[in-house]
Amino acid sequence: MIQAVIESIAITKSYQMGSQQVQALAGVDVHIQAGEFIAVMGPSGSGKSTFMNMLGCLDSPSSGEIRIQGENVTHLSAAQLARIRNRYIGFVFQQFNLLPRTSALDNVMLPLLYRPDHSDAESFAIECLKRVGLAERMDHHPSQLSGGQQQRVAIARALVNQPAVLLADEPTGALDTETGLEIMQLFQQLHSEGKTIVLVTHEPEIAAFASRQLIFRDGRLQSDKRVQPASATEHLQRYRQQKSQEGLA
């Protein structure tokens, strides 16, 4: 069996909310192989975001194990987890989470600041901005960029540390349809280049661009199936045609 990039083994998570015990996750087993493009779906409260935070080592499970490239990271200290995130995980958030009043380039370089052994951080960050098509805007501050451009900067930031897996939490949630499709196009391109991507969404249209769909319900994995992904490029073309026709009519 091929070594999984990230796997969760029987993870559970429960919170104490007042006097009530809330079971957010009730035993989830998922193995993610290198090069997969996975969409995590489910209604709100289904545990998909909690699951995502576990994978990203932002939160630790109540029981069970998270393994990254075979290594159990469940009981590591806060500092050790920070190092794991720095080396293996790239985050993309719904709200972009870029530092204000900081240039796109400096935003992209941020993860490398916490990696003292990294030389040539700047040229690599420029490389990543080129990859998302924003090299000419690297001196712009987030407030000078559109939502789609900000999300591209955030993706470049997620790529800069060459992570084992890219975790995207509702990356199109704050964008209009066309920009969202453009971002999905970028994710598909990155996937075709061999990147492992896990994407949380509640929109089936967005999930359709992934090649594997995990559906959560009530803290459990309801279904896990491989699908034929739709092409974001085609969708984008169709959408643009439609829009221009509507404009003519």
Binding site: G56, L58, A78, A79, A82, R83, R85, N86, R87, F91, N97, L99, L110, P111, Y114, R115, R157, N161
Partner: peptide, 16 residues
């Protein structure tokens, strides 16, 4: 706080 969260997510240790 969000900035701190982001920095931590991308690899800042508590000491940083």
């Amino acid at each position: 706080t969000r900035e701190i969260g982001l920095r931590m997510a991308v690899g800042a240790e508590p000491g940083d």
